[in-house]
Amino acid sequence: MAPPPAIRFDRTGQVFSARSGRVEALRDVGFEVRQHEFLAILGPSGCGKSTLLRMIAGLLKPTSGSVEVYGKTVTGPREDIGIVFQKPTLLPWATVEENVTFPRRHKTGRVSRADRARAQELLDMVGLEGFGKRLPDELSGGMQQRVGIARALLMDPEILLMDEPFSALDALTREVMGLDLLKMFADKPKTVVFITHSVTEAALLADRVLVMTGRPGTVLTEIPVPLDRHRGPETLKEPAVNDLASHLRDLLIGKRAA
């Protein structure tokens, strides 16, 4: 028997009851994410992409269908999942190192020497060597987001959920950050669900791209990226990336026009 997929959505729907009435965010969503796969989810704004992530993390229960992680239905918040938000949302009063160790301090009330060593290791890995004692304010937006990534990796989660993590950065920083992210996963592979609205970013980073429609969000199509895992700045010049990007763009624009 094949091992269960890391994440599985089965006819999952989500309806919010707002003051103005019912809002159907997701309808009949079905897809799987394999172990150590990098899945990019692409779609127009407001198609419920963030809702998907929150359901995986167990912060939100689906109103219909189910979400499974490693073959088990998600019923509450899971600790084996790391989240990187669109904004770094660091604690402005804490140093970079304290921000990285924050999940431990927040969960258990204290931070061990091992945690601090791990934080140091993660900071080195995200390229922030020597910045541990700085305050977030002293860092650029890109560096702050690197702290956010290190924070999400502190507990060594199997699954990393990233909600448009680089959308606030300039185009160049964005590419560098994305490729650095892939380098990190080369040694220690993770299952990644990466939400973006950049077609180039999706094509450059992902193993597979899930394209969604607007509200209510449904899966339009899944497209595998015809490239191996070794990607670098030169990957951007490959015709396959450009072809895929323009194909994705057509899908999104076509969907919007329809």
């Binding site: 993390a57 912060l59 509450g76 918040p77 899971r78 600790e79 989240i83 904004k87 949302t89 927040h106």
Partner: peptide, 19 residues
Amino acid sequence: ELIELSRSLRAPGFREMTQ
């Protein structure tokens, strides 16, 4: 986001307040 982070860590409620 930080409140979601706190919830996803299943941290005790008083620490959400104090930290």
